[in-house]
Design a protein around this nucleic acid. Structure first.
Lengths: 234, 234
DNA sequence: TCGAAGAGTTGAACATGTTCAAATACAGGA
DNA sequence: TCCTGTATTTGAACATGTTCAACTCTTCGA
């Protein structure tokens, strides 16, 4: 945890932002790996050590980006939910907000979201990103709840997490989508979303209870006791 | 490409193996990140430079591990297919071979398979790992073909890749499974496999053609023109 | 047997992420 | 205004992946 998080004076806040800004600009221009901390420091007009005073590591700069994104995304997501009704539209709206927000940083995202190891701080599954993840899952939860579509209790419990995974898959595909203007992702989103929603509707039929049992058993195994199991440290 | 790949004298081969061996031992003992190239060199009794003569980079050592694994796995997989009949058993056998083979290196795998970026050489989706991947997909293809289960043509084309993805998901889950003796993975494997196979059987019914169309459309988008689209270089 | 070409080996040098002790700026109380 | 403690800033120092020019050893043709 950086000091700046605790005491937040005007000037130091400015410097912090300046560093983050410079870092992101450089990341976008020449990629994460290729950018050096010395460049970042120079570009933002501080000494190397100062960069480390504000950000514990190069990775921490990325966390800074994530956190800011979450902050800025928040009202946009609220709005998306406020202006939509049906399940499909709500899900589409929520996910679209993200595509749009990250559009200018798509390439950058590639360098960042490259980690899948839950131990790695920047992983979407890590302890460090938990807060962001949970908040995000909350929006998907709200998307479901706010719609007219009735979801059986056994499904309801897991649905938000599953949808979050779905969304992450889409974003991941998008980040590495080399088709022009990411048309492939667009198509995939379009088609898969309608399948997903139909699947939800279909499996919600009372008759489908046994099928739901199969699925929820899996979810139970995969998500097990979230928030328990402190994960081996190293 | 290392010289050693071209001219392969007896002695140099030995040295190469010694270095790889030392590296893997150290990786297992203290993890990939924590292990330094200097340690590896020292442990294998060569100078730092020599390690780089045989392996282009620290990552290349991991590639060496992958390649060896593929070589050693090959006959085991052949055998697994030779001794099984039904689709379920064949798939289980093939995947089990991998669990067993990698069991002693499970922790290590975590440090390695942590990349998802197709640009990263060590990613399971990278150009560099393509040969290994294709071979692997081949075994899944054989697992399907050799069984009695009839698969409609539209599905058949994509099934191996989808199964490969399924298998990768399982392995990934396993690598990071912190439940004792990886019981969770075991359960997940058990239950999911039967669901997967039932899904295949069910969707193969002539009546299900429209449903298959939905799925294959997705596959088409995701796998697009494999082997085409040379992916932007950097 | 000799010598040259190439294989194999060496450790210094470099780039870059990170740490840290020391220097400086600044706020608030005496 | 001056002093003190805290916040901020600095650049040298360090660890580690990687490169490289120079050196040694092996092989093989004459």
């Amino acid at each position: 945890m950086t000091r700046a998080t605790i005491t937040t004076t005007k000037k130091s806040d400015e410097t912090r932002t300046r560093i983050l800004e410079a870092a992101l600009a450089l990341f976008r221009k020449r990629g994460f790996e290729k950018t050096t901390m010395r460049e970042i420091a120079q570009e933002s007009g501080v000494a190397l050590g100062a960069a480390y005073y504000y950000f514990d590591s190069k990775d921490a700069l990325v966390m800074g980006f994530y956190e800011r994104a979450q902050r800025e995304l928040d009202p946009l997501l609220e709005d998306a939910l406020a202006r939509t009704q049906g399940l499909v539209e709500r899900l589409r709206a929520v996910i679209d907000v993200k595509f749009n927000y990250f559009a200018s940083n798509r390439k950058l995202m590639g360098a960042l979201s490259a980690h899948i190891d839950p131990q790695h701080p920047l992983s979407p599954f890590s302890e460090e990103t938990r807060a962001i993840r949970e908040r995000d899952i909350g929006f998907l939860s709200a998307a479901v709840d706010g719609s007219k579509t009735k979801i059986p209790d056994d499904l309801k419990m897991h649905l938000p997490r599953v949808l979050w995974l779905y969304q992450m898959g889409l974003l991941l595909f998008w980040v590495y989508d080399s088709s022009s203007a990411q048309t492939r992702t667009r198509q995939l989103f379009q088609k898969s979303l309608s399948i997903v929603v139909n699947l939800i509707r279909f499996s919600s039929l009372p008759l489908m209870r046994p099928v739901r049992k199969l699925a929820t058993d899996l979810f139970e195994i995969v998500y097990g006791e979230e928030a328990t199991a402190p994960e081996v440290a190293r």
